[in-house]
């Protein structure tokens, strides 16, 4: 029985007295307001405002007055570029889950032991994550450049002629996904490394003595132990995929022909830069609802299962 369970059995008044006496109330009174005020001012209020603006055709000047009902939402849902943006966002989710996370896990298994060499590798793999997104995007736009980029040299080496990956509607998004995997796998790898280091060594040894192969140790001992970490990392991957923005702007700016937008770059391009604030707010609301739905369901289903 934990302390919290014990607390729950006490009557309300006793719980209150106990909270006051052990300083919990003081802590709440001191620590909660800053976060609560900031959260209200910069998250809750803007959210409410966005929801309100989304029912207006408003260019940001003056106060919104042209009430259009749900027509912003109808326009978004009927907009082919929005469909592409949602499709691209789902592609990023898929790549994060199916390529990035397995890659991160594989590397984490290789270098989770605390040795000097591993520390160097960890740093190297983690570096892309430290780099600012816009900087990473710019660097990769040079890499993919068809005139002097690395990919151009490689393509020429194979006699393929000039290859302008970011100009090609079919390839540009592949390039973006490559950058995203490169940028974030280190983050997931670190989560796994931390989790792998807490796997009890005696269980691994026991499995070895019983004759388990390296693969079997991974499969039956290590991975089951770090399942909560995997659940958390998958959660971050999905939410992160919904928010991808600053890598894309310097790489393609959503082009060519608006084929490489995610939901957020779509919002920025069609809402903010065009001063369609009502329209942009509606996209924001849709994104918010999507993210909350994912978060709630994920917590309910997968996180519970991972804890069990």
């Amino acid at each position: 029985m934990t302390l919290a369970d014990a607390d729950r059995r006490l009557p309300a008044s006793a719980r209150w007295r106990r909270a006051v006496s052990n300083g919990r109330i003081t802590a709440v009174l001191i620590l909660l307001p800053p976060a609560l005020i900031l959260f209200t001012l910069f998250v809750t209020l803007p959210l409410g405002e966005s929801a309100w603006f989304s029912f207006f055709n408003w260019n940001g000047y003056g106060t919104p007055s042209d009430f259009v009902g749900t027509s912003n939402y109808e326009r978004i849902l009927g907009h082919s570029i929005f469909h592409t943006a949602v499709g691209n966002t789902l592609k990023i989710v898929a790549v994060s889950l199916l390529v990035q996370m397995p890659l991160a896990l594989f590397l984490a298994l290789l270098i989770h032991r605390k040795t000097p060499t591993n520390a160097v590798f960890r740093l190297v793999f983690f570096l892309p994550y430290i780099l600012a997104e816009v900087a990473a995007g710019l660097i990769w736009s040079f890499v993919f450049d068809g005139n002097y980029g690395v990919t151009a040299s490689i393509a020429q080496g194979f006699g393929l002629g000039e290859v302008f990956i970011l100009s090609n509607p079919d390839w540009a998004f592949m390039a973006i996904m490559t950058v995203i995997v490169w940028k974030y796998f280190g983050f997931h790898m670190m989560i796994y490394i931390a989790a792998l280091q807490s796997v009890p060594q005696d269980q691994i040894e026991a499995a070895r003595i019983e004759g388990a192969s390296r693969l079997q140790v991974v499969r039956y001992v290590q991975v089951p132990h770090i399942r909560p970490a995997i659940a958390v990392s998958a959660f971050f991957a999905i939410i992160g995929a919904l928010q991808v923005f600053d890598v894309i702007i310097p790489l393609t700016n959503g082009g060519p022909s608006n084929q490489t937008h995610t939901i957020v770059t779509y919002l920025y391009t069609f809402g903010l830069t065009r001063l369609n604030i009502g329209f942009g707010s509606a996209v924001g609301v849709i994104l918010f609802v999507g993210a909350v739905t994912v978060a709630v369901f994920y917590q309910r289903i997968f996180m519970k299962r991972a804890e069990a």
Binding site: N59, P169, P256, S257, N258, R274, L275, N276
Partner: peptide, 20 residues
Amino acid sequence: LGASVGATINDISADLAQDA
């Protein structure tokens, strides 16, 4: 023509150039 229509003209110009 303002930000919104202007950006649309930029978009269609690029799309026309690519025969999209």
